[in-house]
């Protein structure tokens, strides 16, 4: 039973991150996703200190706000400070992460988080923390419920905002000439990514969030040239990574989160192989197609 809960948690994380990550990959903002996933740490610690409990709604929102803050910070360093874009990403998130670590070591008694957990989570403990109603019935792990809620929210966001996300990702300045606010869609996406990161953080830590934000979408991107298919495939590869990763972890007695990242990498290499084979097969007809533009 625990195995199913863990795989389910991994899958939910993979779905939340993979769907949003697809847009990050297409917007060439993968490293901003990386930055957000690290920068929510001080938010989580502070919200934890203030709310004095895990998983309360204010904590989630507060921590997610810090994630959005890092995107503002990156933007500010780049625009106002005229710093190189990559340098401003690197400096902003390391600074916030450092603040998080310092807060953890300062409030080490009050905060039930340790450094290992920050980096690779404690997905193995997910089944232990169940949601028990006042009459004593157990509804299963709390993390699953929270992740499920977040997934629902993300699905709604992508379902409703598909056109806005698609257009502002493909051609932002054209979107602006149609009167569509690119700033709105940017921050809407960043907030949702931030939320997904926060809810996934405790189960899988910062790095697996990044792995699930980037690797399944990149895998899907290699295999398709249609956006809806890409979204579907990244969900599929997320699920497959969770399953394979759990198997690996059990077999070797290692970290589940780490093994899931490795599994995601395995599917990517597989897709890369398919991609190259497809490319080779198509190479000849594609070359023949060229003159047609001169008709």
């Amino acid at each position: 039973m625990d195995a199913i809960w863990i795989i389910l948690t991994g899958t939910l994380v993979a779905l939340c991150c993979g769907l949003l990550g697809s847009f990050l990959v297409l917007r060439q903002m993968a490293m901003v996703g990386d930055a957000i996933s690290h920068a929510v740490l001080p938010g989580i610690v502070i919200a934890f200190l203030l709310a004095e409990s895990r998983d309360s709604l204010p904590m989630l929102i507060g921590a997610a706000a810090v994630g959005v803050l890092v995107t503002v910070l990156i933007e500010w360093l780049h625009r106002v400070g005229r710093m190189q874009a990559d340098a401003s990403i690197g400096i902003s998130y390391t600074t916030l992460f450092a603040i998080g670590i310092i807060l953890i070591s300062y409030f080490t008694r009050q905060v039930d988080l340790d450094q290992d957990c920050v980096l690779y989570g404690e997905i193995a403990y997910v089944p232990l923390d169940t949601w028990i109603l006042s009459n004593g019935t157990s509804l299963g792990p709390r993390a699953v419920w929270i992740l499920g809620g977040a997934l629902l929210l993300i699905l709604t966001f992508i379902g409703m905002g598909y056109k806005g996300l698609q257009l502002t990702t493909f051609d932002a300045s054209y979107a602006a000439t149609l009167g569509i606010s690119t700033v709105f869609w940017h921050y809407a996406l960043m907030s949702t990514v931030s939320l997904a990161t926060v809810v996934s953080f405790e189960s899988v830590g910062a790095i697996l969030v990044v792995a699930f934000l980037i690797v399944p979408p990149a895998t899907a991107y290699l295999l398709t040239d249609r956006l809806p298919v890409m979204l579907g495939l990244s969900a599929l590869f997320g699920f497959l990574s969770a399953v394979l990763g759990y198997g690996l972890a059990v077999a070797t007695n290692g970290s589940v989160a780490g093994a899931m990242a490795v599994a995601a990498g395995f599917w990517f290499i597989l897709a890369l192989g398919i991609h190259f084979i497809k490319k080779r097969l198509h190479a000849f007809p594609a070359r023949r197609k060229l003159p047609e533009s001169y008709i």
Partner: peptide
Amino acid sequence: GLGIWLLT
């Protein structure tokens, strides 16, 4: 991820 997996 590979590193963490090996380390653990």
